[in-house]
Design a protein around this nucleic acid. Structure first.
Length: 514
RNA sequence: GGCAGGGUAGCUCAGGUGGUUAGAGCACGGCACUCAUAAUGCCGGGGUCGUGGGUUCGAGUCCCACCCCUGCUACCA
């Protein structure tokens, strides 16, 4: 059994979860569930990033302490992930004492192994209030920040600790050369390659006046205690979650996969590997940077988020339908748009009419023509075609070409479409009228039942609750979650006793408002 | 400004190394069927393949120019 430790980005605790958060978590959950079905020993980590000035501000605005504030936010996030059936095994928070201890240990270990990597320097430069960042020369055009040309830049000085990222230039070049799949998809890899190729700069890793943070453990020359830069605090969550620095952390570490948003690839593919290398700790195997969701073509922002909540999206057709739609509609290697129209369209066409109805009609026929017991029957063209799709399903899902989850759904859906065609063309209702064609009817029913069962397994990562429900209606033994891909080829439904339940994806319940 | 990717049916998109009438899904129209959630299946209408040139016997597919869109452009989580 292969270990598969995967993580998502930890979410910043200054607001409520929205669809953008959900896309990443659902995608990672699909990968986690897929690997469980493949028989891997999965450990799935998620969590919250709870330090930083913006959290402090948000807490102040609510008139509560930062800790009280993040406790509340973390509770809301966790509750949301439960509603969406996210199957994470662990939920880390950067305010956990164990995490803070781990970060301090990591920094001290870097200091011990490579004392030269940390140094103090007075940083001065043009500071953009819009970005809240020091700007480099190439980001300044006509004396203005390219992103905020209406703002005046300010010349600012601050004494900080720095991390000598420049020491790891060649290390990173080697990583990217030797491990072409370290960062995918390829567009993201190319961006980072360009970044590294242009030469790295050291990063400041402490902030003065940052009170809501892990105090930087090294003593500064002037005695001032500074807060650790949020990313130097956040990135190590993946490591501290394994118990680092305690013995035994290597049972989980290194992670097999970091699932992140494309906006934070450089932190995960430049800064994080350099930090680990500085501490002489193994770097993660793969980083997958998914794209973003837009809403009505607009970038998902707070203003767009006000238009509707994640709750509304869940209430529309239920959590499983939302999971399905997001990963069906939005390519996991790129951007995509969310719209209610598309959601309703896909829900009705694919989940209700195609799949749900296929299940209904087949189960009804087994009840009616075979007294609810699935007959044994020969394999048909349907079984053979499913096998072909299965190969492509795995190619999309197993990470060998990246995590093209939308392709995986399409493969499963192809089986559904084929099932409807098969039922239509073989006309079991006609066969049932002729006793002499009993064996033919058995073959048809047995074959479609097997196909439905396989669909349950293939779609389980996407729709974990509904597939279990259908599995029960099929009369299949055990649970879908206990199935294994390598047993799919030999799956046989003969003898199962079907129980027709209410429609899996009812059409009437479909919300049509907005 | 620099780098990268893209502009193909109403919508979302496929279309390795150039080659017969440019494809799929959804939506739309017609027909068939009745097991099923008024579901399913079959057939069909619909596209100057961003614009203008060029190479070629032949270009959505190669080259040049231009227009438009998107992403990235290190310490915002």
């Amino acid at each position: 059994m292969a270990k598969f430790f995967l993580t998502t980005a930890i979410d910043y605790a200054n607001g409520d979860p929205h669809l953008g958060h959900a896309l990443e978590k659902i995608g990672a959950d699909v990968i986690a569930r897929y690997h469980r079905l493949a028989g891997d020993d999965v450990h799935f980590l998620m969590g919250m990033d709870e330090h930083g000035q913006k959290v402090k501000q948000a807490a102040d605005e609510c008139g509560v302490s930062p800790q009280t504030f993040v406790d509340r936010v973390a509770g809301i996030f966790e509750e949301m992930w439960r509603r969406l059936a996210i199957s994470n095994d662990q939920f880390i928070r950067t305010t956990d004492p164990a995490h803070k201890r781990g970060v301090r240990a990591l920094i001290e270990r870097i200091h011990e192994k490579n004392p030269d990597d940390f140094y103090e320097k007075t940083y001065e430069g043009w500071y953009c209030i819009g970005c809240e960042l020091f700007k480099r020369d190439n980001e300044i055009v006509n004396g203005r920040c390219v992103l905020h040309p209406t703002r005046e830049l300010q010349w600012t000085e601050e004494r900080n600790w720095f991390f000598r990222l420049t020491n790891y230039q060649s290390f990173l070049e080697r990583v990217f050369a030797e491990r072409p799949d370290f960062l995918r998809p390829e567009t993201r890899r190319n961006e980072i390659l360009a970044l590294v190729g242009h030469g790295l700069e050291d990063v400041s890793i402490t902030r003065s006046r940052l009170s809501w943070a892990i105090p930087f453990p090294l003593a500064s020359s002037d005695g001032e205690e500074q807060g650790t830069w949020v990313w130097f605090d956040a990135l190590p969550n993946y490591l501290t979650a394994t118990g680092f620095p305690d013995k035994g952390y290597t049972e989980l570490w290194p992670a097999q996969l970091h699932v992140i948003g494309k906006d934070i690839t450089r932190l995960h593919c430049v800064v994080w590997p350099a930090m680990l290398q500085a501490a002489e700790i193994a770097i993660p195997e793969y980083v997958w940077a998914h794209g973003f969701m837009t809403f009505g073509g607009e970038r998902f922002s707070k203003s767009a988020g006000v238009a509707f909540s994640l709750e509304e999206a869940i209430d529309r057709h239920g959590p499983d339908a939302l999971r399905y739609f997001l990963l069906r509609e939005i390519p996991f290697d790129g951007d995509g748009d969310f719209s209610w129209e598309r959601f309703d369209e896909r829900y009705t066409a694919e989940l209700a009419n195609a799949w749900g109805n296929l299940a209904s009609r087949v189960i009804a026929m087994v009840e009616r023509y075979r007294d609810s017991v699935v007959p044994s029957g020969e394999r048909t063209s349907l079984d053979r075609a499913d096998v072909t799709d299965l190969v492509e399903y795995h190619a999309a899902m197993d990470g060998s070409r990246g995590y093209l989850l939308q392709e995986g759904v399409k493969r499963a859906l192809a089986s559904v479409t084929r099932g409807n065609e098969f039922v239509q063309s073989s006309q079991p209702w006609a066969l049932a009228k002729e006793e002499s064609r009993r064996a033919e009817l058995d073959d048809v029913l047995a074959s479609v039942m097997r196909s439905l069962a396989r669909q349950c397994v293939l779609l389980y990562p996407f729709v974990p609750v509904k597939t279990e429900e259908l599995w029960r209606q099929l009369g299949a033994p055990g649970r879908v979650s206990d199935q294994r891909f390598d047993a799919l080829a030999g799956l046989d439904a003969a003898g199962w006793r079907v129980h027709k339940g209410p429609p899996l994806f009812p059409r009437d319940a479909a919300g049509t408002s907005r």
